[in-house]
Design a binder for these strands. Structure first.
Length: 613
RNA sequence: GCCGACGUAGCUCAAUUGGCAGAGCAAUGCUCUUGUAAAGCAUAGGUUAUGGGUUCAAGUCCCAUCGUCGGCUCCA
């Protein structure tokens, strides 16, 4: 989770809302303890729109961990309201580590937190702390919790009808899948009933712009159980989006000095051993296919293939930067629980390229890629994103990351300084790098608020070495290039999934699968409608005539539901005058329009990739 | 992969405590020939995700598998 937004100009962490949510988390814990007195408490912080609390409910009669049932939520919520209505004061007190240990003697998770605090090593999230902190508790009614605060003065300040328990989830203690799984209850909380209802309505609205809902409605893609999880099929409308985006990317790459290549979807095991995908990335790869004693893998990335192309002949510094682009299909065995519509799939087409560049030219080339990103983002009107410098972690060296700390630090500094010199705002994140090097990821959010990496710009110092990639420099010496892996549009799947939500299905004209729908009022006008449609199709406009026997209003509705940018209504008058009546997706209308004027208006929007209708 | 929930017609959803599987939209046919977001009538559409089990009787209860969803872990 990235930093949360300010509330009325005050940092969220200092806002009244934050304290109220924090206090509600305590109230929830108290309510849970009333129902399950033996429950062990995890942590319970405020989050984006509310709060959560983690519990270990112990073991049930059947020997499995006890879990919350959905029926528990209304019951707990009712208890919470009763507690809130008790108007209990919250009292903070500072305690020594020994006192805290005595106080929470039967709370193993709290004891672990206390140990961390006592040693001045980690906060409740497990993040390292600079200096030892004071241990404090907050108490209200009969419930006392280890907590650094802040809280409301008393529970009477909590709006009784401003909160709601939302869902239950299993979560690993401290986010570590090797540790016990706790039960988390999520709640949302607001200053008053109206704000809560507005939030709930917003969630409903977000669902309507969810790419899974719109993807079906607009007939963009489908999934099929028999084909497999995470393996989308692109319907004709969706494929138009793919082709338009590919065309755009192709233009940009031609202009940027890229060369297009194509490579197979599978390769032998030894390739991935050399690239180090097998040691570092095997969990994300499909199981190998055995044929005649060789093992073949579906490719999870295009890079090893491009490295082979690079290595296929001696390279001179004059050839560099060498930019190899491929719209390659990649296959990744993502964990089943992670699949998510188009945003997280197992077969994806990447707008991929690998740029081989002497270290001396790295900055210019890296910036050319960043400029390309910003060009795309401007074109699509994407302004809500965060650039993230994704770094290695010391603990992951040799496990998740190639084991060369010197190079990691050097490359991270190289990227950091490049970004700073060019005044590009970014955040830094530990333990988010690719196994072969650090990267700049562009983080975006789905309609329902889930965070994803979209574009990525990566530095690879590892694979050029594994593949013995070299070039002859000006001095006649063999030198190793760096490799930049870049995917400004991420994958087609995720990018289009994101675009659907970004535009709420109202694609700009150049992207719209159907650009114009011609609607004759009666079948007397069918012939004119077909003639207009042919004329437009001839000029590269995606136009269709709706010759269905239904009424005009129904045809308009059908076109609106499909979010077709332009509707041309054709009645007796239009045929007589040789005009069209234009209705735009946004409801604006214009009568007596000349077909030629309309066509040139549309073509202008298509050719200029303009955002307006 | 883990925790929880869910799976009924192409889509959105019904179906009392276990008791004859239904509606709207979409599709198809016919009638209407219509002026800016849904005309009327009719027809067709289902092994209730799949496989077992309990029962006189299962969409409904139990088990397993597959899939989807909310999270966790992970990631383009």
């Amino acid at each position: 989770m990235t930093k949360m937004a300010d509330v009325n100009g005050i940092p969220y962490e200092q806002s009244e809302l934050y304290r109220m949510r924090h206090t509600l988390a305590h109230v929830l814990a108290q309510a849970v303890l009333e129902v399950y007195p033996e429950a062990k408490l995890g942590i319970g912080p405020p989050i984006q729109d509310g709060f959560y609390y983690d519990f270990d409910l112990g073991t049930a009669e059947n020997g499995k961990p006890r879990t919350f049932k959905p029926d528990d939520l209304p019951q707990l919520e009712a208890r919470m309201r009763t507690i809130v209505a008790g108007k209990h004061d919250l009292r903070c007190r500072e305690v020594s580590a020994a006192e805290a240990q005595a106080l929470f003697a039967d709370q193993p998770y709290k004891l672990e937190l206390i140990d961390g605090l006592a040693q001045g090593q980690a906060d409740a999230d497990g993040n390292p702390l600079a200096e030892p902190v004071v241990i404090s508790t907050y108490r209200h009614d009969n419930f006392e919790d280890l907590c650094r605060g802040p809280h409301l003065a008393h529970t009477g300040d909590i709006p009784v009808d401003g909160f709601k328990l939302m869902s239950v989830a299993g979560v690993y203690w401290r986010g570590d899948e090797k540790r016990p799984q706790l039960q988390r209850i999520y709640g949302t909380a607001w200053a008053n009933k109206r704000d809560l209802q507005r939030h709930l309505r917003m969630l409903e609205e977000a669902k309507k712009r969810d790419h899974r809902t719109l993807g079906r409605q607009l007939e963009i893609y489908m999934m099929d159980e028999e084909i497999g999880p995470g393996l989308p099929l692109w319907l004709p409308n969706g494929n138009i989006l793919r082709e338009e985006i590919a065309k755009l990317a192709r233009e940009m790459e031609d202009a940027g000095g890229y060369q297009q290549v194509s490579t197979p979807h599978i390769a032998k095991e030894s390739l991935y051993v050399r690239s180090r995908h097998l040691p570092y990335y095997a969990d994300s790869m499909y199981a190998p296919m055995d044929r005649d004693g060789s093992r073949y893998y579906l490719k999870p990335m295009n890079c090893p293939f491009h490295h082979k192309i690079y290595a296929s002949k001696p390279r001179s510094y004059r050839d560099l930067p060498l930019r190899l682009a491929e719209y390659g299909m990649i296959y990744r065995y993502e964990q089943s629980g992670e699949l998510f519509g188009l945003m997280r799939v197992r077969a994806a087409q990447q707008n991929d390229a690998h740029i081989y560049v002497p270290e001396a030219q790295f900055e210019a080339e890296f910036m050319a890629v960043m400029d390309l990103y910003r060009h795309y983002f401007r074109l699509f009107g994407i302004d809500k994103y965060v650039m993230r410098l994704s770094k290695h972690s010391k603990a992951g060296l040799g496990k998740k990351y190639v084991d060369n700390e010197v190079m990691w630090l050097k490359m991270e500094e190289l990227v950091r300084q490049t970004m700073i010199r060019h005044h590009i705002p970014f955040v830094e994140a530990e333990d988010e790098a690719a196994f072969y090097g650090p990267k700049i990821d562009v983080q975006i959010w789905s309609a329902i608020g889930r965070e994803f990496s979209l574009a990525t710009n990566q530095v690879d110092f590892a694979q050029p070495a594994s593949f013995n990639l070299t070039f002859t420099n000006r001095q006649g010496e063999e030198e190793m290039p760096l490799c930049i892996h870049r995917a400004p549009l991420g994958s087609h799947e995720r990018f289009i999934g994101f675009l659907i939500e970004h535009y709420a299905g109202d694609f700009p004209v150049w992207l719209a699968p159907e650009q114009v729908r011609v609607i004759p009022i009666t079948d007397e006008q069918n012939e004119y409608a077909v003639q207009l449609t042919r004329q437009m199709a001839h000029l590269g406009i995606r136009a269709h005539a709706d010759l269905d026997g239904s009424r005009m209003n129904a045809k308009i509705r059908a076109a609106q539901v499909m979010k077709v940018p332009y509707m041309l209504i054709i009645g007796e008058r239009e045929v007589r005058e040789g005009t069209v009546s234009l209705r735009r997706r946004d409801g604006q209308r214009q009568q007596g329009v000349s077909p030629l004027a309309f066509i040139s208006h549309v073509r202008e929007r298509i050719e200029g990739r303009l955002a307006d209708l």
